[in-house]
Design a protein around this nucleic acid. Sequence first.
DNA 1: ATAGCGCTTCAAGCTGGCTTGAAGTCAAGG
DNA 2: CCTTGACTTCAAGCCAGCTTGAAGCGCTAT
Lengths: 137, 137
Amino acid sequence: MTTYTIGEVAQKYNMRPSTLRYYEDLGLLYNVPRENGHRVYTDQHLSRLSTICCYKNAGMSLDELAAFFHYSESEEDVAKTLALLDEVDDRIQRQISELQANYQQIQRKKHYFADIQTALAAHQPRPKWEDYRHQIY
Amino acid sequence: MTTYTIGEVAQKYNMRPSTLRYYEDLGLLYNVPRENGHRVYTDQHLSRLSTICCYKNAGMSLDELAAFFHYSESEEDVAKTLALLDEVDDRIQRQISELQANYQQIQRKKHYFADIQTALAAHQPRPKWEDYRHQIY
DNA sequence: ATAGCGCTTCAAGCTGGCTTGAAGTCAAGG
DNA sequence: CCTTGACTTCAAGCCAGCTTGAAGCGCTAT
């Protein structure tokens, strides 16, 4: 069974050891055994950590995550787990479509400023934002 | 020319008046004229505010935004503006694809927990996560 | 045997992005 | 005329999510 030190896990997940300790304090990562007082992580922990990152990235707060894990361990609270998942699903969908709109807007700005640059170099008149603001790229 | 009070703008953009004042302090929203000491916003300000929200949502910090607006006003710094836009473009694309992966994962979890609930009600054995972890919905 | 490295705990500190509170101004309505 | 309510400024406060610092332990390599 592969095991990892806190430093290895941190590197793998591109976070600081302190963050892992912090998550453990919050109860998000638990049952991390010690060897000579040092934390020893297994693939189980990594899998849990991936889950944490996924939900966090989806916009869940660390508190909500704690609640989620708490619910998903009791048989009676499956409904609550599902409600939270629906909530996250909702959030993530809205986020994606907002980001896609933002993406469009950034593309417009990129074209606009690129054309400004060209125009300045060629001593031509600057383009007008009006001509870009409804473009779709 | 339509004008708006700080309260109206706040409501329109679903933010607090204090946030608008804060953005003004940071120099993100400027040249907001006063009438009897009260701020008066025009459609120009709303347009600027939309831009702020777009970039902020795309993951730009308020400091970066200030830099962005600063650059995009000077003719020499168009290149810097473009560089920042590229950076934001990059971030936003990565964010979208991460979110889409997260979305998939949430769908798996939703199916998984829904099936757990069904199984529990029917006194059947619980489904195994193994059967879900690579599904695509 | 001692230096150094990576870990440990615990408490305090930091950052970004606002929000709140106190004290005051102004215009409209009863 | 006085109250109400939306605004003003300015400084201080708050929250999430870490990060840092101090003090210490235990293995390995020189």
